[in-house]
Amino acid sequence: MATEAAIYKAVPRPSLWERIRTSSAPWVFMAPATVMIFLFFFLPVVLTIYISMTNMSVATFGKVVFIGLQNYIRMLKSRWTVKILTNTGFYVLTTLSCFNVGLALILSLLTTHINERVGTLFRTLWLLPRITPSVIYALLWIWVTADAPYGIVNQFLSPFGIEPRNWMNAQPWLVVIMANGFVGASFGMIIFTSAIKSIPEDYIRAAMVDGASTLQRIRYVILPMIRWPILFVLTYQTLSLLTSFEYILLLTDGGPGFYRTEVWALHAYHRALSNYFGNVQFGYGAALAAVLVVIGIIASILYLRVFRFNELVAEPKIEAL
């Protein structure tokens, strides 16, 4: 015991200043990022929730009153809530499964199984809409789907005896989902392509020798090996689809008719910033946005649970030995 004490004494205790310095270093380094997160991520949520509990609008500026949960109660009572919620679910699920993940997978698999140069060229072309300004891209869709004698779609379909029409009005969901999906698929396409390309060649060769056809190779080797990237894209794109509305705004503005393609994020925008009747209701819009935040959080937690997101981000994207 005595020797032990002696050893402890021999090592000088760090001075108070020394101890503060070493223990505070992590905080100092993290401070800038923490401030940013607080200012730009956390504070807006708090503000939104606060505004959502007021009657703030163009009419009430200057005499904003705290009204508790009234905006939320109004939302529950609104006969459009269910309709818009259903729209949102339909839009997110369909775009996600058919395009952002489904088409992205098909594109990445196709372009990695053909001639390399052609594949790269194809993927580059597919990226064009993403780097085109949204307004121009939306305009293109409006022209493409326009009524006779302008729309290209009509020109393609008329030889098959299909009546020319304004496709945006006839099939608004189809157009909205396709316009979003074609752009959305490029994100998954890039992630999946790089994942597929980083699968070591030997696995593919082994599968070929083991007797797998191309489809069986995809099914039993490639897809399982890129399941983390797939789950990542699924999660990430769910959240971004929930909150995205710019293309819908530009294409149909939630129409045609009353709320035919209105989704939650667009509804919040309409209420808070661009009301039909010039009565911009910040409070109600904030309440709508707050609900969207809650939906996003719930979705995130669900993904976290179901797909064990921690593993998803902790493990390397490609499992290899």
Binding site: P200, Y203, R205, M225, A320, L321
Partner: peptide, 9 residues
Amino acid sequence: FQSYALYPH
């Protein structure tokens, strides 16, 4: 194969 190429999943 040299890398064995056992399917990790």
